Simulated scan of single mutants.
Amino acid sequence: MDLKRSQLNEAAEDGLISQQQADKLWAFLSERGMDTPSFRFSHILYYAGGLTAIGAMSLFMTLGWERFGGWGLFFIALAYAGAGLWLTEFLLNRSKLPIPAGITASFVVVLTPLAVYGLQVALGWWEEGQVYRDLHRLIDGRWMFMELATLAVGALMLWRYRLPFLVMPVAVTLWYMSMDLTPFLFNNEDLTFELRKLVSLIFGLFMLVLAFWVDIQTRQQKDYAYWLYLFGVVAFWGALSFMNSDSELSKFIYLCINLLMIVIGAILSRRVFTVFGGLGAAGYLGHLAYDVFKDSMLFPFVLTLMGLGVILLGIYWQRHEANISGYLRGLMPQAMKQLIENRHSF
């Protein structure tokens, strides 16, 4: 939960702590929170400026840059990367500002595919008509070389700087790779949409397992797993939701998977599982309403009773949450218990 200043003032008024202690505690928490990403105006400016610069060298790269040629793009990317590294060192070591340092370090990682593309063009690896901006809108196995290089640079930057935001370009690259992996592994004539979805589903699961492993390993440190969870869920849930299903049993299994995602989100305190799981469950209920029971007068009443039952379950959980949580955590390994306690702390 989020601790507010008004809650500390109420605790002081109730005599639990003195007003002086409340003031000192709030000052301590505010100072510690400066290095934690939040909805502060300064942080909004950091991310708005940083993402604009990152987008300029990736999503919003214009065709005019192709005029520089392969070597021109390669050396421009290297020059920008050098400036980004200098800014990262300055912000982290001299100014002690880890959040903007993480953004400038990510800017360096994002420049990697541009540098690789420029080098490939200079060496004649790309035919006429292929442009860099297609990386972000076309699925092509040949992008894999840029993606592998980006992962290598991202891993190197993470090893050097240990800044959580650096996981963002790594996670995005893994997501891109989940789409480009199919044409890279199979011949184009063998590709089907179903095969693409299957590869994306498996790769999404791999990303989620990786995110959980990172979460366990860094449970007492900063949140390095957030972006891996986000894009892992997108790859997994997106592929799962677009798979063809001709039987009601498979659709019901889809519902169960989404309900399990909601439970996992609640356990790990990861909203991305809960949000996408909720969307999937709502989609299944829509299928029941508009396809299976479209002519039934009883369905809305049954659905209302189900909703009320869920509310009653929530009331029961709230009243017995401490006992239930204590019992369930007693069944978990120590590392898992520490992870949950850290994620649920305020």
Rank of each mutant, 00 (worst) to 15 (best):
P100E: 06
I103K: 09
F107S: 08
F107Q: 07
V108P: 10
V109W: 03
V110L: 09
L111C: 14
L111F: 10
T112H: 01
P113M: 09
P113T: 10
P113Y: 09
L114G: 05
A115D: 02
A115E: 03
A115S: 08
A115V: 06
Y117H: 12
G118M: 02
Q120N: 13
Q120R: 15
Q120M: 12
V121E: 06
L123C: 12
G124V: 08
W126F: 13
W126Q: 07
E127G: 14
E127N: 12
E128M: 10
Q130H: 14
Q130M: 14
Q130N: 12
Y132K: 03
Y132S: 05
Y132R: 02
R133W: 08
R137P: 02
R137M: 14
L138S: 11
I139K: 01
I139L: 07
D140W: 15
D140E: 14
D140M: 12
G141F: 09
G141S: 09
R142Y: 12
W143H: 08
M144V: 15
M144H: 05
F145R: 11
E147A: 08
E147F: 06
E147N: 10
E147H: 13
L148V: 12
L148T: 04
A149C: 14
T150K: 04
T150I: 09
T150D: 07
L151S: 03
L151D: 01
L151M: 10
L151N: 04
V153T: 05
G154P: 08
G154D: 08
A155K: 01
A155I: 06
L156Q: 06
L156A: 15
L156H: 07
L156N: 04
M157P: 01
M157D: 02
L158K: 10
L158H: 09
W159G: 13
W159L: 14
R160T: 02
R160W: 04
R162D: 13
L163P: 09
P164H: 04
P164Y: 01
F165M: 09
L166W: 05
V167W: 09
M168V: 00
V170S: 07
A171P: 03
A171T: 07
A171F: 06
A171S: 13
V172W: 05
V172I: 15
T173P: 06
T173D: 02
L174C: 12
L174V: 07
W175V: 03
Y176C: 12
Y176Q: 11
M177D: 02
M177H: 00
S178K: 04
M179Y: 13
M179P: 00
M179V: 00
M179H: 10
M179G: 07
D180Q: 01
L181P: 04
P183Q: 03
F184K: 01
F184M: 01
F186A: 13
F186T: 09
N187T: 11
N187L: 13
N187P: 06
D190Y: 00
D190V: 00
L191E: 05
L191Q: 04
F193R: 11
E194A: 14
R196V: 08
K197G: 01
K197N: 05
K197W: 00
L198N: 09
L198Y: 11
L198I: 14
L198K: 14
V199K: 06
S200Q: 15
S200A: 15
L201N: 10
G204K: 02
M207K: 05
M207F: 08
L208W: 03
L208N: 03
